[in-house]
Measured scan of single mutants.
Amino acid sequence: MTTFKLIINGKTLKGEITIEAVDAAEAEKIFKQYANDNGIDGEWTYDDATKTFTVTE
């Protein structure tokens, strides 16, 4: 398992979430479901060097 981080730069929600996932594809699926569940819709980026996803509304 690898640790992945999501940085949320939303209009109403900001913060960071860290999860353990098998790979970046699994982490992205989990993070996008979390964002969808919380009404966050924005532009996604991923930095493989730091294993960090960012979503900006």
Rank of each mutant, 00 (worst) to 15 (best):
residue 38 N to A: 10
residue 22 V to I: 13
residue 25 A to M: 14
residue 10 G to F: 11
residue 10 G to V: 09
residue 39 G to N: 11
residue 26 E to R: 02
residue 49 A to Y: 02
residue 17 I to G: 04
residue 8 I to Q: 08
residue 42 G to T: 02
residue 38 N to C: 02
residue 4 F to A: 01
residue 15 G to Q: 08
residue 32 K to T: 08
residue 7 I to F: 05
residue 35 A to D: 01
residue 17 I to M: 02
residue 44 W to T: 01
residue 55 V to T: 08
residue 57 E to F: 14
residue 28 E to R: 15
residue 22 V to W: 12
residue 50 T to V: 04
residue 18 T to D: 07
residue 7 I to K: 14
residue 44 W to H: 01
residue 33 Q to K: 13
residue 47 D to K: 13
residue 16 E to I: 11
residue 15 G to A: 13
residue 31 F to H: 01
residue 30 I to L: 08
residue 35 A to T: 15
residue 39 G to S: 08
residue 10 G to L: 12
residue 14 K to Q: 05
residue 19 I to H: 04
residue 41 D to Q: 09
residue 27 A to H: 00
residue 21 A to H: 06
residue 41 D to T: 12
residue 9 N to I: 10
residue 40 I to F: 09
residue 35 A to Q: 06
residue 9 N to L: 15
residue 19 I to V: 15
residue 23 D to P: 01
residue 6 L to N: 01
residue 40 I to A: 07
residue 18 T to K: 06
residue 39 G to C: 02
residue 26 E to C: 02
residue 21 A to N: 14
residue 35 A to R: 07
residue 24 A to D: 07
residue 23 D to G: 15
residue 9 N to M: 13
residue 41 D to S: 07
residue 33 Q to F: 09
residue 6 L to R: 00
residue 46 Y to A: 01
residue 19 I to L: 06
residue 9 N to F: 14
residue 27 A to D: 00
residue 36 N to R: 11
residue 9 N to Q: 10
residue 51 K to S: 09
residue 24 A to I: 10
residue 21 A to R: 06
residue 44 W to N: 00
residue 32 K to R: 06
residue 17 I to C: 01
residue 19 I to W: 10
residue 52 T to S: 12
residue 37 D to A: 14
residue 1 M to L: 10
residue 23 D to K: 11
residue 36 N to M: 14
residue 20 E to L: 04
residue 42 G to R: 01
residue 24 A to S: 12
residue 15 G to C: 04
residue 56 T to F: 07
residue 8 I to M: 11
residue 28 E to W: 12
residue 56 T to S: 13
residue 5 K to S: 07
residue 43 E to R: 15
residue 37 D to T: 14
residue 36 N to F: 15
residue 2 T to H: 15
residue 10 G to W: 14
residue 23 D to A: 10
residue 54 T to W: 03
residue 56 T to A: 05
residue 13 L to S: 07
residue 3 T to G: 13
residue 33 Q to E: 04
residue 55 V to A: 05
residue 6 L to C: 02
residue 53 F to N: 00
residue 53 F to A: 01
residue 5 K to V: 06
residue 10 G to K: 07
residue 20 E to A: 07
residue 55 V to G: 01
residue 24 A to P: 14
residue 4 F to G: 00
residue 24 A to T: 11
residue 36 N to T: 11
residue 22 V to S: 12
residue 50 T to H: 14
residue 26 E to L: 05
residue 38 N to D: 04
residue 2 T to R: 11
residue 41 D to H: 15
residue 33 Q to H: 12
residue 54 T to R: 15
residue 14 K to V: 12
residue 56 T to Q: 08
residue 47 D to N: 14
residue 27 A to N: 00
residue 50 T to F: 06
residue 4 F to N: 00
residue 3 T to V: 09
residue 9 N to H: 14
residue 12 T to G: 09
residue 25 A to V: 12
residue 55 V to L: 09
residue 35 A to Y: 01
residue 7 I to D: 05
residue 42 G to E: 02
residue 56 T to E: 12
residue 8 I to N: 03
residue 36 N to H: 15
residue 38 N to Q: 13
residue 45 T to W: 10
residue 17 I to Y: 09
residue 14 K to I: 07
residue 27 A to S: 06
residue 27 A to R: 00
residue 52 T to V: 08
residue 17 I to A: 07
residue 49 A to R: 03
residue 46 Y to Q: 05
residue 1 M to E: 08
residue 55 V to Q: 01
residue 19 I to N: 14
residue 19 I to K: 12
residue 12 T to D: 11
residue 41 D to A: 13
residue 16 E to S: 13
